[in-house]
């Protein structure tokens, strides 16, 4: 029953595969031209620290010590939370310029202190790449694909109902089989995107900084976020022969609505706040920000992460149910 939808999903997956493959290829091609890597201590003072035996301390951290160039003394303390402190002691500095410096550069904090002939440079690294963020990015890619696949029933309605409805299956089971295939395809895209991101990070030496914490919720939210887009497009276009217009309005609207809640003019803010109830992007904003800062809903107060997961789940389920109701009433 789902063969046509299966072919559509496979075509979509192939397309996504080309894009992700291209990203991966570009990452590989440009790797030799990139300066160093995300991993700051591939080379310190011309030495690769991983070749130096590590001494494990009582608190679980490890210490590596070695001599760098010009008699500089390097100590690297790596802690279990993936933060590191690298200390470079230059005994022959004999500095003329006084004053200490403190520089913050992204996840690096560099400070130098001059004392007599010595200059001690301390580099604190705090590089963490939360898996949660990667999951959300993958979910956004999947959501784009989901909006395209959400035209499934509209595409059937564009001159193919006679084929779809003269198969030995009820209209409902035909539609649900398509929904199932599409959903699997969307989750497949999410997985493929996640794998691609991790591979790119690995190419640039950053894979080991990925931290996993509370990622199950993010995984669940991400999947349902993408699926909720699918449900909304499905519900909006099932009665249409061509849903392209809906699609071209949906994304701008979804992206703008969370921002419009602050607008005072007319009742626009209130309208936006109400519409955000069915806007997956609003739930994404809410999911990514702290509870206090989000006030973009009226109908649904922000109950926190669980409520956001539930909300996108409901959007998906309601979308599918609404589209089924339309599908049942359609006429060829």
């Amino acid at each position: 029953m789902y063969y046509v939808e299966f072919l559509r999903v496979m075509r979509m997956l192939r397309l996504v595969g080309y894009v992700l493959g291209a990203v991966l290829l570009l990452a590989l091609v440009f790797r030799p031209f990139s300066h160093g890597s995300i991993n700051v201590n591939n080379s310190i003072e011309g030495v690769d620290p991983s070749t130096i035996p590590a001494h494990t301390n009582a608190d679980g951290s490890t210490t590596r010590s070695f001599m760098g160039k010009h008699g500089r003394h390097v100590t690297i303390v790596a802690r279990p939370d993936k933060t590191e402190t690298i200390t470079v002691d230059d005994p022959a500095y004999n500095g003329k310029k006084g004053g200490n410096e403190h520089i913050e550069f992204g996840h690096l904090k560099v400070s130098t202190s001059n004392g007599g002939r010595h200059r001690v440079s301390t580099i604190d690294t705090d590089l963490k790449i939360p898996l949660n963020i990667l999951l959300v990015i993958a979910a956004c890619v999947a959501a784009i694909v989901a909006t395209l696949l959400g035209l499934a029933l509209s595409r059937e309605n564009d001159g193919h109902l006679e084929l779809a409805w003269t198969k030995p299956a009820s209209r409902e089971s035909y539609a649900l089989a398509s929904v199932a295939v599409d959903s699997l395809g969307i989750l497949g895209v999410m997985l493929a995107t996640l794998v691609t991101i991790v591979l790119v990070l690995a190419i640039y030496g950053g894979a080991s900084y990925i931290t996993v914490s509370d990622s199950l919720t993010s995984l669940l939210f991400g999947m349902l976020f993408a699926l909720s887009f699918y449900g909304i497009v499905l519900a909006a276009t099932s009665s249409m022969r061509r849903g392209g217009l809906v699609l071209s309005l949906l994304w701008p609207a979804a992206l703008i609505l969370p921002g419009l809640v602050r607008v005072q003019w007319m009742n626009l803010g209130t309208v936006a706040r109400t519409l955000n109830t069915i806007n997956p992007v609003a739930y994404l904003y809410a999911f990514l920000s702290s509870p206090q800062t989000t006030n973009i809903f009226t109908l649904l107060p922000n109950y926190g992460t669980a409520a956001q997961v539930l909300a996108v789940l409901l959007l998906f389920v309601a979308g599918v149910a609404l589209s089924l109701a339309q599908w049942r009433r359609l006429e060829a």
Binding site: Y3, V4, H160, A169
Partner: peptide, 27 residues
């Protein structure tokens, strides 16, 4: 029961073979 409508209801982007495969799976 088979129905052949007057206007074409085939999928433009699919091949004839894919249409037959669709039938094989459904019937």
């Amino acid at each position: 029961l088979a129905y052949v409508p007057e206007k074409s209801v085939l999928y433009d982007w699919m091949t004839i073979g894919e249409h037959l495969e669709m039938q094989r799976r459904a019937f």
